[in-house]
Design a protein around this nucleic acid. Structure first.
Lengths: 241, 241
DNA sequence: ACAAAAGTGTTCTCAGTACACCCATGC
DNA sequence: GCATGGGTGTACTGAGAACACTTTTGT
């Protein structure tokens, strides 16, 4: 394994987590001191990324960063776009930062997103934190654009592939599923119609357990059966031009 | 403008054209002679690509290549994925080729596709040709995989965005539109139901012209109105979970 | 007993689907 | 006049949408 890094190729990870308050992003604090220990010249937040090792797959680089951030080995992930315009790095903060790292001022960034329930992350990396997607802090580089692009991509994916379940624990209630759709798509859904439609799907199976804890009336739990989904998936390929 | 090239960053273009026989791809012949002028050591086809200039946007690089290939300045295009595994270049032909060019043996390729009617291309670049997607020649590198990936992406896009019209001339018949869907999605569509559905769309406007020429009965021509599509597009955002 | 979230049914409308024959033109 | 692709209508079915109240539990 060649652990030297490409100075001009990096991977950025948009880690999306869902909890009962909505969609959250995992960001890293970026601080650089130069003249004065009290007043950093760079002090904002960025997506977590790193340059790619010489002998590493792009997917491997993304998962290496994800593991460093969350301690987790696996999660749903998807490479959704590459960003590489020459003027990506335009403001002084970003230039200072890049020079302090000794990498190229023009870097191609291959962007990935990850999807998981927030509760699954037990140990956060230092200097990182969850932020609700509606209320992000000041971001470095073009990372606001990358996040926007990731959100649009996953909104489309959610409508075509069964990835909504990646945001939920294995066992979930119908209301949790509904809130997941509402948070990611930014829409409101009628509860009765939603339940009717979901219960009718063969791959959503009711299990004989209730969610106990904070709720008042215990809610029935369901699971997503990937097997059944795949076996019945020809029926989802409805042509609807 | 800095015309030096990154040795490890390239752009590959999947140029998709549609004609009455179906979906075609524009490929470039790759030939390399070493010992003998009669028997080349490399003799196959590849997607057209090039390394990116130091001061060029990725999108600009893609369009530069596209123009070189087709002589055209504009077309619908989309960056759909980056390919960059270390073992992308594994066979001898590809290694010989890369060494003859003096570029790195590990290159990150940002892949784009373009969509247009075949007839729009008047002047093909030398050593390039259209191939039907069902009948591709021997391909170098991982270009078969890239093509497959492009096809899956555009099939999904066609269902969500009005990009089918990029494959057609401004004025088209309903049957041409139907054949476009059939070629790209690889399905058969009932003609009567299709016409009913399409004519009902406000953004498909019948114009008072007929297609004359080879056909027997002249067919009515239609145009796609992007304006009307955008103004009515809230209605296409149907939630259909 | 009351607060809070879970759960439940009916009616209406509209879009999708299956399906077979006549029409207008060029040759 | 005939071959070729263009063009049309109906009946059925199923899914989506609108809409308000009862149930079960913890406190």
């Amino acid at each position: 394994m060649d652990f030297r890094k490409f100075p001009n190729i990096s991977v950025d990870c948009v880690v999306m987590g869902l909890d009962h308050t909505g969609l959250q992003l995992l960001l890293s604090k970026r601080t650089l001191h130069m003249y004065d220990d009290q007043y950093p010249v760079v002090d904002d937040w960025v997506l977590t990324g790193d340059h790619v090792f010489k002998s590493e797959k792009l997917d491997e680089a993304a998962n290496r960063i994800f593991k460093l951030l969350t301690g987790l080995n696996t999660s749903y992930y998807r490479q959704f776009r590459a960003f590489g315009n020459p003027e990506r790095i335009k403001n002084d903060r970003d230039l200072l930062w890049v020079k302090s790292l000794g990498v190229d001022t023009r870097t191609i960034s291959v962007a990935y997103y990850f999807a998981l329930p927030v509760e699954q992350v037990k140990t956060l990396a230092p200097h990182s934190a969850w932020y609700p997607i509606q209320d992000l802090p000041e971001l470095g580089f073009d990372h606001r654009e990358i996040i926007q692009s990731a959100l649009l991509d996953i909104q489309e994916k959610v409508m075509n592939d069964p990835i909504i379940f990646e945001f939920l624990p294995d066992k979930f209630t119908l209301n949790e599923l509904q809130h997941a759709y509402e948070s990611i798509l930014g829409v409101e859904i009628d509860n009765r119609n939603f339940r009717k439609k979901i219960i009718a799907k063969p791959y959503i199976v009711s299990i004989n357990e209730k969610r106990i804890g904070t709720a008042k009336k215990p809610a029935n739990l369901y699971m997503f059966s990937k097997d059944i989904f795949i076996k019945t998936s020809d029926k989802h390929q409805i042509i609807n031009i």
